[in-house]
Write a protein that binds this DNA or RNA. Structure first.
Lengths: 301, 301
DNA sequence: CTCCATCATTGCGATTAGCGCAATACAGTG
DNA sequence: CACTGTATTGCGCTAATCGCAATGATGGAG
């Protein structure tokens, strides 16, 4: 009977759907199922009736829902009261992909430093791919990076913004190959400049596989930022997140191909493992981000 | 942050002594120390000041004490409310040594059946030694037996009563060897009837070792109950818990040797492992026993 | 002053619990 | 009847937790 298990229960009780709940909790379906089983065994009462097709709360489940909400509430209040007593101190280690350093980080870090000036910050930059691994290993408290498709265990993500994946080409190449009048399938047969690995590469590979195409790769580079100069040099068509393009000094030297395949957008956000996320210094950063996110959402509507 | 960890914290906060707290929690000192460390890390604040010679609560520790007590209270209330909604049902498996079946069990079982008549009881009897093993293996919910000196991990005990270990001999033997006028050291040099294993055997072995004596074992039997007839037959001096002697049909046929070594008394009580003790059916039995125990204590005073 | 007892902590090996993956069971659908 | 969607279960693996033994530090006894 753990705070985390209570939270998991609340999600299931809210959604009444194990699969969706498991995704929301960043948990495999089996783990979620067994978590609920554990709770039910510990209480000696069933919390849900699984009706082969639907999930409903039992009477006991409803009582437990009240209890769980209150218990979590109490715990959070206590944590807040604790934070009020003493200013946070310690070290917060951040890891950010270059993409993220340009976009999200300044805002967040400024706000954090303003609120918790006693916390010493440690910022490391590197490839987005590495970020998740660092978080999993506990080397880093929070990574600010693109969210991978597949999430490891005990990792929490906080999506902050999305940015579309754009196909770009140098102006000269656009004219040479008459790129603007071609359809998506034709475009991806042109010479491509791709990252060796990473999310956008996987997205393209998925799309190619779905359409049974083999890419014509003119060059592979590491890192999204490096793609843009390569494209500028006319090596081929590149794929970059809009966010990266906007911050690039070459952004006016390349053209965006609007007649390109629609890949799923890049999602950028925070990434931390659930264990270190318990640390107050870390949780504060996370909650600050959530807060700013909520404000932004409100602002939009 | 687990209910159990909160309880552990409360014990430490109450006793302000890690060693004693660890014994009260049936935990090794190291495990207890690390449990507190975990809590402190999770909260990001120290709960105790370890002053090289004394342990004191910090300010945060006092707040946490309030929180923990309330959280446990809430949980217990919820469990009670749960129990109120539906009568307990299921199976409770008990294991009792013969000694215990005669003494403690009738009271407890009757009270339990009266309170929770829907629970199906399963009673197995056997050697006291085996009881703890069965509990550890999870084969049995609760054992009613003598408490072993060394307790395994994750096992909870509830001492209910103590009974002294008595040296007994057949009347004929008392006269033959003039037992009543001999001192303790001489007595244990006489032929002895001992259980092959078990607590009373270990107690005697300890005493012998301390006094650098080698026993003169006339016969070894299994089980305390069997000792009495053997003693009655004049095989030698036996050692039995008073409780066993009282219930024995031979109790008038043997004499108690008051001039014998004083061994630590037998402690009889409940034994369960902390995991199955979470099951409501099991916890109910345990709490019922605690309740009756408290009433008895009150009665005495 | 030295030796010893006490007490919290830490290193280490072993055990347990919790997770993800893949397979399974089962009901509704095209 | 194949197929999809959904919860569960078998299994291997990793991480958490425990007990034992050693450590370090401290105050009291001889």
């Amino acid at each position: 009977m753990d705070i985390r298990e209570l939270e998991i229960f609340l999600v299931v009780a809210d959604l009444l759907h194990f699969g969706r709940a498991s995704r929301q909790c960043n948990l495999s379906p089996s783990a979620l199922s067994r978590t609920i089983q554990r709770l039910e065994e510990e209480l000696g009462q069933a919390l849900f009736v699984r009706d082969k097709r639907s999930v409903q709360l039992t009477e006991v489940g409803r009582s437990f829902h009240d209890y769980a909400r209150k218990a979590i509430q109490d715990y959070r209040s206590f944590q807040v009261a604790l934070g009020g007593e003493r200013a946070l101190s310690g070290t917060l280690s951040l890891y950010a992909s270059i993409t993220a350093v340009y976009s999200l980080l300044p805002d967040l870090v400024e706000a954090y430093r303003h609120a918790y000036s006693d916390v010493q910050l440690e910022l490391r930059t590197g490839a987005a791919e590495e970020a998740v691994a660092q978080v999993e290993a506990g080397e880093i408290d929070i990574a600010v990076a693109a969210l991978p498709d597949r999430r490891g265990a005990r990792i929490d993500f906080l999506p902050i913004m999305t940015t579309p994946l754009l196909f770009i080409a140098g102006h000269q190449l656009v004219e040479e190959l008459d790129l603007l009048s071609r359809n998506a399938l034709e475009l991806v047969s042109m010479p491509l400049v791709l990252p060796q690995a990473g999310l956008s590469r996987r997205r393209l590979d998925q799309w190619l596989k779905k359409n049974r195409l083999v890419p014509n790769i003119s060059s592979e580079v590491s890192g999204n930022e490096a793609i843009i100069p390569m494209v500028h040099l006319g090596c081929g068509i590149g794929i970059v997140p809009q966010l990266v393009l906007e911050r690039s000094p070459f952004k006016d030297e390349v053209a965006v191909l609007s007649n390109a395949p629609q890949l799923d957008p890049y999602v950028v956000g925070l990434c931390s493992n659930q264990r270190t996320l318990q640390k107050p210094v870390v949780r504060a950063f996370w909650q600050l981000a959530e807060q700013r996110l909520a404000e932004t959402q409100l602002h939009k509507t």
